[in-house]
Structure formats: C-alpha cells, structure tokens
Design a protein around this nucleic acid. Sequence first.
DNA 1: CATGAATGAGCGTTCATTCAT
DNA 2: AATGAATGAACGCTCATTCAT
Lengths: 192, 192, 192, 192
Amino acid sequence: MKKKKNIIQAATRLFAEQGYDGTTTLQIAGEAGVTEPLIYYHFKGKEELFSHILEVTFHEYFSRLDSLEKMTGTQFKRIEALLDLHFRFVKEMPDEIYMGVSTCPARLRDPKHACSKITQHQSERLMAYLRDCLEKGIRSGEFYKVPVSETVEFLIALIYGLMRQRGLHLLEKEGMQEVTVDFCRRSLVKGR
Amino acid sequence: MKKKKNIIQAATRLFAEQGYDGTTTLQIAGEAGVTEPLIYYHFKGKEELFSHILEVTFHEYFSRLDSLEKMTGTQFKRIEALLDLHFRFVKEMPDEIYMGVSTCPARLRDPKHACSKITQHQSERLMAYLRDCLEKGIRSGEFYKVPVSETVEFLIALIYGLMRQRGLHLLEKEGMQEVTVDFCRRSLVKGR
Amino acid sequence: MKKKKNIIQAATRLFAEQGYDGTTTLQIAGEAGVTEPLIYYHFKGKEELFSHILEVTFHEYFSRLDSLEKMTGTQFKRIEALLDLHFRFVKEMPDEIYMGVSTCPARLRDPKHACSKITQHQSERLMAYLRDCLEKGIRSGEFYKVPVSETVEFLIALIYGLMRQRGLHLLEKEGMQEVTVDFCRRSLVKGR
Amino acid sequence: MKKKKNIIQAATRLFAEQGYDGTTTLQIAGEAGVTEPLIYYHFKGKEELFSHILEVTFHEYFSRLDSLEKMTGTQFKRIEALLDLHFRFVKEMPDEIYMGVSTCPARLRDPKHACSKITQHQSERLMAYLRDCLEKGIRSGEFYKVPVSETVEFLIALIYGLMRQRGLHLLEKEGMQEVTVDFCRRSLVKGR
DNA sequence: CATGAATGAGCGTTCATTCAT
DNA sequence: AATGAATGAACGCTCATTCAT
C-alpha cells in the first residue's frame, strides 16, 4: 500500500510540473519506484489516476469550506477566513493545487469530464460564499455598495491568481497574506 | 503566404484550448487546411511554431507597455492605464494571451526555453512599472503607505487571475473593468 | 527472449544487405516477426541495435585475435593463422562481417560513434600483430627485407578486400585460402 | 551550366561520405548552392543523379582500361600498369571511386539497377585482363604455375581493398604503390 | 501484489518529388 | 534556367495500455 501512495505522490508532482499531457505513465512509475503495470493495478488508467488526485484534493478543500460556512462574525472576517483557507491550502499542498489550477481548458469545458464538474462545483461554492458575504455586508452597512456579481468574480480571479503564483513558487514574499487582506479591507469595509 | 497565417491562427487557438502537449501537429494542419509537412516548411518544428506565436504576441504586448511608460498624470491613472491595457489586450487576442498564461511550469522554469525568458522579462517590466507607480504615489501622498514589494506582487497576481478568467471565457461580466479599477482605487488612493 | 534474438538476426542480415540507412525499423520488425515497438523495448533505438551487433561481433573477433597472440612457430605460420582466422570468421558469420565492413565513412570518422572506436581498435590490433610478425621475421632472416609499415598496410587492405568479397558472396572459389597463403608466402618467405 | 557541375560535385562528395541512403537531396542542393528543384530540372531524380555519376566515372575508367589493353611488354609489366591505373585513379578522383566501391549490396545485386550492370562489367573486364596476363605469363614461363581463376580473384580483392583504403584516406603511406608492385612481383615472377 | 514482455495507435519529423510561376 | 510553396508517403520513435505469469 505504500507503493500506491508513492504513485499518487509522484503523479501529483509530475502533473503539477509538466501538465497532464506532458507527463507519461513511465515517468510516474519511475519516480514512484514501481513498474508501469502497477499503476494499472491500482487505477483504471492515467485519466483515473488524475481524477483520483483531483477528487481527493477537492474533497479536502470542500470539507474546509464546509467548516468555514459555520463561522460567525463580521462579513469581512468571513472573507478574511476564506483568503486564509486558500493561503494555508496552497502552502500545505502546492502541487495538488497547481495541478488543479493548470488543467487545460479543453478538459475543463468538456462537461463529461471529472475536472469540469469539480471545478464547476468549486466555482459555485466560492461564488455563493462570497455573494453571501457581500450581500449581507452591504445590507448591514459594513461594506461599501459595490456591484455584487462583478466583485464576486473579481475576488475569484484574485484568488486564482494568488494560487497560481504560490503554486509556481515564482514569487514568495512573506507578508503577502497580510497585504492581501488589508488591500481587500480598505476596498470593502466602510469607515475603518 | 495565406497558408502560413492559417497555420499560426489554428495553432494559437489549439495551443490555447488544449495546451502545447495536448495539441498535435496533425490537428494544427487539419484546422489550418494544409498538410502537416507545410508546418515544417515554415517553421523548424512544433516548438518553434509555439515560440514564434509567443514572441509575436509579447512583442505587441511590450510595445504597448512602452507607450504606457511615456504617460503622465496621477499615479493611479497610470495603474488604471495598465489595467486597461490588459483588459483590451485579452479582449483583442484572447487565445494568444491564454496560450501564454497556461504554459506549463516545466517549460517556464527551463531557462533555455523561449517561454522562460519572455515571461521573465514580462514579469520584470510589470514589476518595475508598478513599483514606480506605487513608490511615487506613496511619496507624493496620493497613495496609502502600503508595503511596496508585496503590493506589486499582489497586483501582478490579480492581473494574471483576470487574464486567465477572461481568456477562458468562463465568466464575462461587462462591468468587470470598472469594478476592478474602483476596487483598486479605494484600496490605494487616499481621501477620494 | 527468442524474439530479441530474432530482432538481432533480422537486423544483422538487413543491415548487411541494405546498409544502415537503407534499412527501416519496420523491415527489421517484419523480418523478425515482431512489432516495431518491441525493438525499442530491447534497444534504445536503431542506432543502439546496430552498435550492439557490432560490439558483439567484434567481441568475438577480438577474443579470437587474443588466442592467436599466444601462438608460437615461424612468423609466417602466425600470418597464415591470421588469414585463417579471417577466412573462418567470414564463413561463419558473413552478415556480421559485411555489416561491419560496409559501414559508411561518415560514421567511421565521427569519433563519438561506436563504429569509429571499434574499427579503430581493430585496425590497431591488426597492425600491431602484423608489424610484430614482419619485424621478427625480417630480423630472424625468415622474411625478405620488406618495408614494414607499408607491407602492414598492404596486408590489411588485402584482408579487407577478401572480407568484402566473401561477405558479398560475389565470387566464391574454393581454393581461395590456399592461393592467398601461397601468394603471401612466396612474397615474404626467403628460400622456400 | 556551372550549377549542374556544382550539383554533381556536391553529390559525389556526399554520396562518397555518407552513402546513397544517407544523403538527402536537400543536402546536395545546399552544398551545391542551388535549390532542390534544380536537381530535378537536370536529372530525373536522386537515383538518376547517382547513376549518372557512376556512369561518367566508369566511362573514364573503362577508357583507361582500353588503352591498357593495347600495351605490350612482359606480362608483369601489364599487371604493374593495371595497379598503376588504379593508384592513379583513386588519387585523381577519390570520391568517385569510393562512391562506387561503397555501394550497398542490395543495389549491386538487383540486376535491373545501373550499378549492377556497371560493376558487373568492370569485374568482367578486370578478370579478363588479369586472366590473360596470368595465362600468358605462365605459358611463357615468366610466372610461377599459379591457379589462374583463384589468383585472378585474389588480385581483384586486393585491388578493391586498396581502393577502399585510399578512398577512405584512412592510411596513406607514400611508398604503398611500390610495395604493392614488389609484393606481387615476388609472388608471381620467376627467377627475378 | 507485482512484473517482463509485448502491442496498436499515433506522434513529430523528414524524405524525394512536383507544381505554379 | 530557376525557385518558393506544397505534398504523399514513410520514417524512427513513444504512448497508454494489456497480458501471461
């Protein structure tokens, strides 16, 4: 069973680094220290191996989102918590995240594909969460009167951008999270 | 010579949609309405075709950045112009942008690769531009006293996130640009 | 493992008949009764398959040369034994020999290439052996006083010519070996 | 018309260096400083270009053989003249010779092929010439009583071996011709 | 659980050759 | 006489996958 884990780990790193199409089953087997057929013993194929990793990752992700939803406090605290969740997540499992973020659009748009459903679901959850925060915050006077839909979309783009950058390890300033939170606070919260 | 253009156009769209590794030269030829060897008559190989598109695109991009640098006005006007440049660019040539944005990290990190040098250069230009705006804006009292490096990185992540989203055509609210500009203004500009 | 042998045998015959560049991997696979990719399972590529055959052949060749070197007797007996070795060798494995003899000069001169090193080595061994025979034979008065270097080179050319002719099966007189030995004897050995 | 010559020269060198299959029409055009289609303007194709060179070369070769046949003197003088012809020839046009010598057996054995006929013819001429020398020399008592057929074949192999070595420029002792002639004289001519 | 041997399908690429000009 | 553009056919090779053991 340790070998199955090796396969998953190797696959995750390679998918993240080289993309799905750029990674061969031989490479995965090599990095995992096993032979190719073992991959087919544990998974139906390359595609299923990929989906498996995606599902496990998003399962963890969604369960974290779940606990977030029970949170109380000001609406901005809730947004701050969402940002915190993502910063933590990408720090803990950067390969998994990057693998998800970098999946190619063709796969994302094919509705039959596992990727499509999962990222669709993620998008919807994020949108619902943010929309809820914004609407409540505006109604209560905590936030400025920003256009909700557009701001939701803006924040999602922001989160994606940050995930990608972190996942790529291209730039890694330490104070990023604080700066991000402050930036959003100034833009959203009235009379700080 | 029309056929060469066809090849480039087809390649751009397919690379954007399916990634480099997911796109075959046969597909490109098919979409371009030519035979495969013609690709090799005009380009040294798949890799060079890819690089060529990248270079042409970034050449246009950099020449737009050049004209931006001559701009005067408040520092926020300059940032607004940078955002406008990107919004326009992705609207005019979404495939080219997405092709660039979605290149796999392995290719991005290999320093011998054309991708690497170009995106590196882009990053540096963006950083220099934004750093200049922020430093001048803070010094003149136009902006809040935000940490410069981190805010630069934050804004780059934001721009990447928006490019990706626009390129993917996943969400396309009309008022996005205005909302983006306003969001940043509230966060940066003092006493509006 | 029988299939690997088939590949080697088929390749040897085809390389000998058609040359390296004139032989396709598909032909080899066809003649060997296997599919093309199996060649790549057992060998890194066409080049390595070729080198492998060359190395195995020359390994056998050199080991025969080794036993020759331990021989005693008159110097002409030693030369006779060398001719015998080559006549036997080309009779036992004509394809292997011809494959080696007919390799194209470009490959022979590229010092990075396996061919180059092996044939270089063969040349040196042959030269050393013949030079030794001639020098000793001349010193002891067994041979005429012939110019050593040139005669060595002459004998090597002769051996190559005979190998080629035998390998090609162009002309196959039975008494060739005897005639060859006698011809050389009359030219070298004094007072027969 | 200078360009046609360029093509022929380039082709000759490349065919000699890399073999027929190892040489591409693009290479030939490149070396000749012309474009590929011009080759097809002057020749029906690669094959005909090759045959053309072969024929021109052998035409010259045969015309030299012709003048040899008119020669008088001792039989060994005639053999000496034959060796001289070959030494001269390979010195004057080494590429042409090597191109002929290194043609692959498949092409040599296909009776429909130009190569086949020409080399066949060459073989026959050489054999007839040498057979004539030997028979007359033996009958007149000039030569030892050697087996004619086998000695003819032996001498042809020797000539091929020397041609190859000279063509390859692998070893180039100056006194080779003299040593060769002397070697043969000692073996053939009685009571020197 | 695990593997060595094997394959069908398809990849990027190159070839000799042709055609319109 | 000469060429830029284009192609059908085939090449060496790699892929994800399977099967017998």
